[in-house]
């Protein structure tokens, strides 16, 4: 098992725990849907934060590692595109209200970004690499809010 996958998967586990703590507390307190926009965002991030945990699975690792050969230039372009889109995905979930008055629209924007980059990657380097790039984007989008919100809370709220 490669160390990089383990670290990423472990980060996913940490993010998942952090994402689900407020959800479980809200369910226990009976106020999860007291303010629906927050509940919808929390549940979406709770699901997205599970995606990077797949890196801990050997089957998923084999699936992600399997990629057809492509010209070096295309692979570099694919990685740069994924990197660029990852920064946008992290902004969309990390600060959903920064661009949208209705923050839930950020989830639709994220889905659009992932879908568009998937199509471009598919044409550029094939389906296997496109799937890996999309998985990375979704994972980073899921990891960002729980980690960022926890750091913010520890710094200011507690």
């Amino acid at each position: 098992m490669r160390r990089g996958w383990l670290v990423f998967g472990a980060l996913g586990v940490v993010a998942t725990v952090l994402a689900w703590i407020p959800i479980v507390r809200a369910i226990a307190g009976g106020y999860l849907f007291a303010y629906p926009p927050l509940a919808h965002l929390q549940l979406a991030i709770g699901v997205l934060s599970l995606v990077p945990c797949l890196a801990l699975s050997r089957a998923m690792q084999a699936h992600l590692a399997h990629a057809h050969a492509a010209p070096g230039g295309r692979i570099l372009a694919s990685r740069m595109l994924a990197s660029w889109c990852a920064s946008l995905a992290m902004l969309l979930t990390g600060a959903p209200g920064m661009l949208f008055v209705e923050p839930r629209i950020a989830l639709l924007a994220l889905a659009t970004v992932v879908a568009l980059q998937h199509v471009v990657q598919w044409k550029l380097v094939g389906m296997a690499r496109a799937t890996r790039a999309s998985w990375l984007l979704v994972s980073l989008a899921g990891i960002t809010p729980p980690i960022a919100n926890t750091i913010f809370a520890l710094a200011f709220a507690y």
């Binding site: 106020y31 303010y35 509940a39 209200g97 661009l99 949208f100 209705e102």
Partner: peptide, 22 residues
Amino acid sequence: IDSLGPSWQELENRQTIARLAE
């Protein structure tokens, strides 16, 4: 202090407001 739409902290504040309202 808030962003264009509510930040995560302000979303939580609104949840608190909704609980208090109830």
